[in-house]
């Protein structure tokens, strides 16, 4: 297998050479830090972003290494059973470069937020795929999955995954009442963090037919608000409330919330439309597998709601 990375001028000359030796195999990828070229199907894949791990696994690759989920020391719980022997080479904030080198990767799939200084180091180890555009843009996970798919030589599977998601959300959306509002919050002892309507899970909620209500308390471009004062708990009142914690199961978050004054007074609590969810999945993850897992949660909540 052959993989090469060069920038512009040199790259073009090399492409011509490779095109002669291996006709049709090389792919040009338009990434945040310029055009890179990948040839063949990479075998040893290192993912430095939860969304990249999710996409790679969904595309049929088993990465050799990944970074830990936010606040945890392994991959997110919703990935349990899919990548059991994976090596951990850092956290969402910090990559352990030496550990990446030790994995002898063929390709590195990184987050859109990877800083240029990190890119320079990593691109010396292996071709490093950094998507363009913010994680918070509309259709970000689809665009990123398509790019990762080109790197992994699995473009057709990416389109199938995205089509499958569109079909599924359309089906769920028919069960969601017109203009139903949903609020996604992470529960903290001092009060809820309201998640922004631009984060991954909020985009999935929106695709499934909900109007995501971030209570007007999230600053522009931020993933979530500061913890709201308990006096402002009524701001998270909505038609539906999806309640998460990062480090424990959702039921624990719900128990904590219920014990705090004012929570039981919320309309959404009285109508029993609070859904306890896993924060690793709902407030940290992204990608096609996560999207489907979130849709599972939504569908289960809607089913439960319809039963008398």
């Amino acid at each position: 297998m052959l993989i090469t990375i060069r920038k512009t001028g040199l790259c073009l000359a090399l492409t011509a050479l490779l095109a002669v030796s291996l006709p049709g195999a090389a792919r040009m990828l338009d990434t945040r830090y310029g055009t890179i070229e990948i040839d063949g199907t990479p075998e040893r894949v290192v993912t430095l972003h939860e969304g990249a791990l999710d996409a790679a696994v969904a595309l049929g690759t088993t990465p050799v290494a990944a970074v830990a989920t936010r606040g945890g020391d392994g991959v997110a719980r919703y990935m349990d059973g899919r990548v059991d022997d994976i090596a951990i080479v850092g956290t969402a904030r910090e990559t352990h470069i030496e550990a990446v080198v030790a994995q002898r990767p063929d390709v590195i799939l990184a987050a859109a937020t990877l800083p240029e200084s990190q890119y320079r180091l990593l691109s010396n180890i292996a071709p490093t795929v950094v998507p363009k555009g913010s994680n918070f843009a509309p259709d970000a996970w689809q665009a990123h999955t398509r790019l990762y798919a080109r790197a992994l030589n699995a473009t057709d599977r990416a389109e199938a995954l995205i089509n499958n998601f569109d079909t599924r959300t359309a089906a769920i959306a028919t069960q969601v009442p017109e203009a139903a509002e949903a609020t996604l919050a992470r529960w903290m002892p001092q009060g809820p963090l309201v998640m922004a309507d631009i984060i991954f899970a909020s985009r999935v909620l929106a695709a499934a037919g909900f109007t995501v209500n971030d209570a007007g308390v999230v600053a522009e471009g931020r993933p979530h608000s500061d913890p709201l004062s308990l006096e402002n708990l009524d701001r998270i009142d909505s038609d539906w409330l999806f309640l998460a914690t990062l480090n424990a199961d959702g039921e624990n978050a719900l128990a904590q919330a219920r014990s705090s004054p004012g929570f039981e007074r919320l309309d959404v609590v009285q109508r029993d439309r609070v859904v306890a969810v896993d924060g690793q999945l709902w407030t940290s993850a992204s990608g096609p597998i996560a999207a489907n897992a979130i849709l599972d949660d939504i569908a289960a909540a809607l089913d439960l709601d319809r039963q008398p």
């Binding site: 606040g71 945890g72 903290m188 002892p189 001092q190 009060g191 913890p227 004062s229 308990l230 914690t245 990062l246 480090n247 424990a248 014990s259 705090s260 004054p261």
Partner: peptide
């Protein structure tokens, strides 16, 4: 210990809110 972290991180900076 993640569980401890979440329960205590807020408590460590001091607050009077949400007590019963």
């Amino acid at each position: 210990d993640e569980r401890t972290a979440d329960e205590i991180r807020f408590w460590v900076v001091g607050s009077l809110a949400g007590r019963r």
